[in-house]
Nucleic acid binder design. Structure first.
Length: 560
RNA sequence: AGGGGUAUCGCCAAGCGGUAAGGCAGUGGAUUCUGAUUCCACCACCCGGGGGUUCGAAUCCCUCUACCCCCGCCA
């Protein structure tokens, strides 16, 4: 068994596989590099980071950490037409929130002078040339997947001529698309990327970082290996679709005679079921106003997950458990939810909140009387202490905790059945009141004064059900938003499409103690899951709660 | 015969010639003042199909099949 395959971290989380570690171990054994292991996370600043990027971030930063090396954050901003400053700040904040610290913060655009020189060098060496075919002609002469392309008529022009044109390009003497610099490789290569790829283009666009200093910009395939080499990257980790680009990546560095060049290693992207991962589509949702913004809690952006209440630890544990491989995968949402729940269960306290209220009246409890009862802050965890809850004759309980005609193995409230009110007394349901439509609107019960929690009577006999409740006279109303699936699979289109209805607004009845929850704090609602007080929308005294994840339940109504 | 990848349980994922790890999901049970948590147990005679090599293969060879990526002056 490889040392790097199965590993239990300090957290007890089982790690998925990671073939990258095997490669690096070998490189280390071979003394391939005279510098320390260095990686980079190179986002293009054209959108917010999402769960897919988290995997890349964990791999890039995690690999550097594992080998005691460094990881740089680098904005891959070689195309000014598609990038904006707005995203730059969010990216740094998101990475910091995840808990990673970069070594250097770089802009690929800061390397434009060096890249320009490298291009000159290739031209001088006869490995690149200025091509004045139109974009359409270049496209048409490239050939197809099964047919070779044709050489550009400019392919063999003198290096000095190409060099002069390149300088003129830089000096603004050409318009967009009039001329470009192409690598001279092989128009008959079965790898389309090697058919004299364009490496520099004219673009009269203001760059968010370099302004109007340049009107020529390098193409990714030429820029990236140079960026990596400049920074001393040893392992350039990227996703699978760049496998075909690796020969070009290596060609650039070899042609430049770069010593100890970095190597590119590809891994499979993260895909989540029922989730929209495409940056393009997320942008559409944001711009069309279907969602509240890039940080809408229903989105799988880091900002959205943060606002939804997911923890960095939970997310990272999930990513580590998923592992690193080269097989396309589609991971179940339940896997992510498990790790969020798993992380939250020790970090949260429990509060009683009735999402769908049903009035419960204790007929034999004195009218006007209220007693304060201590309730555990966390079930089964005495170290977390207790807090006081008011209890009186009229309460709210959950609608689903009562069934007029009980299903099999249903052991909550139904006529004639006795249950425990969490932290309070045993009650037995005697009768119900219905409205004109036949809906049960009120439960009449009697309680047993000898069964008060904390007294011997509370354990004298067993009841199978324990339900949560809230004092009707003193409870507070809180807005609650429950989020469903982030997206639904549309069979007609074959795509995951955002479900704008995946949000339910409720006004729930909550115990008064919930007032003391601060925005951003997470709590567990009894049997309803984990929630977070929305740090963005909540105002003092009126917290809004977003659902993070629901609790698993081993009882299903079908089991009748 | 374009090229490059990938195929191991419903979903991820170990395995690298010695006779199928683990996690999620699921199932059964114990504990429980949340049907949560915790805790046990079960959950691939088989590794995309078919051949072959071998005492022995998911692991080597041949072949077939399926899926993903590549014809941007995007990244």
């Amino acid at each position: 068994m490889s040392e790097n395959t199965v590993k239990t971290a300090d957290t007890g989380i089982t790690m998925g596989g990671n073939f990258i570690h095997d490669i690096i171990d070998q490189d280390l054994a071979d003394h391939k590099y005279s510098r320390e292991i260095t990686t980079r996370f190179p986002p293009e600043p054209n959108g917010y980071l999402h769960i897919g990027h988290v995997k890349a971030i964990c791999i890039d930063f995690g690999t550097a950490m594992k080998y005691g090396g460094k990881c740089n954050l680098r904005y891959d901003d070689t195309n000014p037409a598609k990038e904006e400053e707005e995203y730059v700040g969010s990216i740094e904040g998101d990475i910091r929130w995840l808990g990673f610290q970069w070594n250097q913060l770089n802009y690929a655009s800061d390397y434009f002078p060096k890249m320009y020189e490298c291009c000159e060098e290739l031209i001088r060496k006869g490995k690149a040339y200025a091509c004045q075919m139109t974009p359409d002609d270049i496209k048409n002469s490239r050939g197809t997947l099964t047919e070779p392309g044709k050489n550009s008529p400019y392919r063999d022009r003198p290096a000095e001529e190409s060099l002069q044109i390149f300088h003129d390009m830089r000096d603004g003497k050409y318009g967009d698309g009039e001329v470009c610099i192409r690598a001279k490789i092989d128009m008959a290569s079965p790898n389309m990327n090697m058919r004299d790829p364009v490496i520099y283009r004219v673009l009269h666009v203001t760059h968010h970082h370099t302004g109007d200093r340049w009107c020529v910009y390098p193409i990714y395939d030429f820029a990236h290996p140079i960026e990596d080499a400049i920074e001393g990257i040893t392992h350039s980790l990227c996703s699978l679709e760049f496998e075909d680009h690796r020969p070009l990546y290596n060609w650039v560095l070899e042609s430049l005679d770069w010593p100890e060049p970095p190597q590119q290693i590809e891994f499979a992207k993260l895909n989540l079921s029922n989730t929209i991962m495409s940056k393009r589509y997320i942008r559409k949702l944001v711009e069309s106003g279907v969602v509240e913004g890039w940080d809408d809690p229903r989105l799988c952006t880091i900002a959205g997950m943060r606002r939804r209440g997911y923890t960095p630890e939970g997310i990272k544990n999930f990513v580590m458990a998923v592992g690193v491989s080269k097989a396309n995968s589609n991971i179940d949402m339940s896997q992510l939810e498990f790790f969020i729940r798993d992380d939250l269960k020790d970090k949260t306290e429990s509060r009683m909140v009735v999402l769908h209220p049903l009035k419960l009246i204790i007929d034999n409890y004195p009218e006007g009387q209220t007693e304060w009862l201590p309730v555990e802050n966390k079930a089964g965890d005495e170290s977390k202490g207790t807090h006081e809850m008011p209890f009186s004759r009229e309460l709210w309980v959950e609608q689903e905790d009562f069934m007029e005609v009980p299903a099999k193995k249903y052991f909550r409230l139904f006529p004639g059945n006795e249950v425990r009110l969490k932290g309070a007394y045993f009650v037995t349901c005697n009768s119900v009141v219905k409205d004109e439509n036949g809906n049960v609107v009120e439960l009449h019960c009697t309680y047993d004064p000898d069964t008060k929690s904390g007294t011997p009577g509370a354990d004298a006999r067993k009841v199978k059900g324990t339900i949560h409740w809230v004092d009707a006279g003193s409870c507070i109303d809180i807005p609650v938003r429950e989020y469903g699936y982030l997206a639904q699979y549309n069979e007609e289109t074959g795509y995951n499409e955002f479900d704008p209805n995946s949000k339910t607004d409720l006004t729930a009845k909550a115990e008064p103690f919930l007032k003391e929850i601060a925005p951003g704090e997470r709590v567990q609602f009894f049997r309803n899951g984990y929630y977070i007080a929305d740090a963005v929308l909540s105002k003092p005294g009126a917290p809004v709660f977003n659902q993070i994840v629901g609790l698993k339940s081993s009882w299903k109504p079908e089991a009748k």
